[in-house]
Every structure is written in structure tokens, then in C-alpha cells.
């Protein structure tokens, strides 16, 4: 009997369910908290032992001689990320403009799922694509051995495309049609109206897309490791055909066999990476706030 669910029964069930929801929500927050605690607890002692300055600005990474300078990796991460942004952002923005303002509907129905698929491809598959296609391409076109800063940038540039396109596209769609019409009514062509008015109006959304793209690029590990060469040498920007090692690659390459201070230094590398991600997230939420105001 349906009426068998009595009032008494319900009065027990509701608080219980509320607890279930609350605990589920807290699990996620708890995970973040635990990661923070573990990371900082594991990394700070090493930074203390090595010395903050020596750790962050040291240019030599030779664990066997207790040399733990991660500047080459910090710089490597920055180079590779900057390269990815340089290549991926313009393409991404133009692609988003195409998707939102030019693309005929039938083509859109094909492109949108294709982009979603691009976002869902595992990074090791990207890495494989990098090894098989991009490394020989760079080797044959620019010289060097192919595993390099520029190869990693190229690959990351492709990997951040779905992020950049998705966010920029929704920012473009959020711009009121009245602005576009206002521009067209002045005699502006479609392109002029889109690039002169609609895109600038979506500026903060585009910035958010770039910031999230940076976050994705700097945190990427497997694909980068497979094509970047991974030398722990401090590179100058014009050595873009030589190999670099990123912070992420440093951890994943050596964690398997590291012990003692070496192991702690790798965790500390993770701390540095985490701080980068934290800054990027802060920047993103600041931009989001500006956008909603």
C-alpha cells in the first residue's frame, strides 16, 4: 500500500538522505584537503633541507650527487606552456569564431562532437600521435632529433584546443545579438562586426579560456614526457629545437625508483606545480567574477 509510507517513516528518511548528500559533497572537498596536506607535508621538509633558493633557482639536477635544482624544469614548463598558448590560442579563438558565427548548422552538428571527442582522447594517445607524427615532422622540417620544446608545444597546442574553443565559443554566444546588429546597422560586414564588436565584448571569456588552457598545458604529463626529450638542462628560448623537461615529466620519470631526499625533492616539485595551478585557478575565478559583474 502506498500510504504505508507513513509520516514517521519520512521524518527519518529525510535527515538521513541529507546526510548522504552532505557526506558526498564533503568527500570531494576532503580529497582536495588531503592532497594539500600530503603534498605540503611531503614536500616542505625537502625544500627545507635543500634550501628554498637552491631548490628553486638551482640549475643542476643530479640526484646521485644530491644536486636538486629545478629551475630547468620550471623554465621548461613555462616554455612549453607558452609555446602551446602561442600556437593553440589563436587557432582556438578563430575556430570558436567559426563555430559560433560562421559554421553552417549541418557542419556544426559534426564539428561539435568531433571537438568533444578531441577533449576525451587519453593523453597517452596524444603522446603516441606525437611520437609517430610530430617528432618525425619536426625532425625533418626543422632539424634536431625531433623530441624538443617545439614538438611538445605543438602537441600541447592541439591538446588545449577543445578547452579554448569550448569556453570562447560559449563566451561569444553569450554576447547579446543587439551588439552584432548595432555593428551591422552601421554598415559593418559580418567579419568586421564579429571581430570588431562581438569578440571584444567576449574578452573576459576569452581570457578565461586562455587561463584554463594554461592550466591544462602546465599540468599535462604523459604526452609531454613522450615528445619533449626530457633533458634536465636549462635552455634559452632560442634553443627550441632541443629537449626540455617539465615539472610534471620530472616527477613521473623518476618517482618509480627514487628514495630518501630524492623522493622528497620530487614531491616538492609537485608542490611547485601545485602552486602554479593554484595561481591559475585564482586568476580564473577573478576573471569569472569580472565577467558576471
Amino acid at each position: 500500500m502506498i500510504s504505508g509510507i507513513t509520516v514517521k517513516n519520512r521524518s527519518v528518511r529525510e535527515p538521513v538522505m541529507r546526510w548522504v548528500f552532505t557526506v558526498s559533497a564533503l568527500t570531494a572537498v576532503l580529497a582536495v584537503g588531503l592532497i594539500c596536506v600530503f603534498l605540503f607535508a611531503g614536500g616542505f621538509p625537502a625544500i627545507g633541507k635543500i634550501g628554498v633558493l637552491k631548490f628553486l633557482t638551482g640549475t643542476v639536477w643530479k640526484p646521485t650527487y644530491d644536486d636538486f635544482g629545478i629551475l630547468p624544469m620550471i623554465v621548461g614548463s613555462l616554455y612549453v606552456t607558452a609555446g602551446a598558448i602561442l600556437l593553440g590560442v589563436p587557432v582556438g579563438i578563430f575556430a570558436a569564431v567559426f563555430m559560433a558565427k560562421v559554421c553552417p548548422k549541418p557542419l556544426y552538428g559534426f564539428m561539435k562532437p568531433a571537438l568533444d571527442l578531441l577533449a576525451g582522447i587519453p593523453s597517452v594517445v596524444y603522446g603516441f600521435f606525437g611520437i609517430v607524427v610530430l617528432v618525425p615532422f619536426v625532425r625533418n622540417t626543422f632539424g634536431g632529433d625531433g623530441s624538443s620544446m617545439v614538438t611538445a608545444s605543438l602537441l600541447l597546442g592541439i591538446m588545449i584546443l577543445p578547452t579554448v574553443i569550448g569556453i570562447t565559443e560559449s563566451a561569444l554566444r553569450a554576447v547579446p545579438d543587439e551588439l552584432y546588429e548595432g555593428a551591422v546597422a552601421l554598415g559593418a560586414s559580418h567579419e568586421r562586426a564579429v571581430f570588431g564588436v562581438v569578440l571584444p565584448a567576449a574578452k573576459s571569456g576569452v581570457m578565461a579560456a586562455v587561463v584554463l588552457g594554461v592550466g591544462r598545458a602546465i599540468g599535462e604529463t604523459m604526452a609531454v614526457k613522450m615528445v619533449a626529450g626530457n633533458q634536465t638542462v636549462l635552455r634559452a628560448p632560442d634553443e627550441f629545437l632541443k629537449g626540455v623537461r617539465t615539472l610534471t615529466a620530472n616527477v613521473v620519470l623518476e618517482m618509480g625508483y627514487a628514495e630518501g631526499l630524492h623522493r622528497e625533492a620530487l614531491i616538492a616539485t609537485g608542490v611547485v606545480l601545485f602552486v602554479f595551478i593554484l595561481l591559475i585557478n585564482l586568476l580564473f575565478s577573478a576573471l569569472k567574477k569580472e565577467r558576471t559583474e
Partner: peptide
């Protein structure tokens, strides 16, 4: 030229 119902200055 055209002026619209709702003011639509560019941002």
C-alpha cells in the same frame, strides 16, 4: 542608419 529600441552601446 538605425537606432534600436533598447540602447545598444558597444562595451
Amino acid at each position: 542608419g538605425m537606432v534600436f529600441q533598447k540602447p545598444n552601446p558597444f562595451p
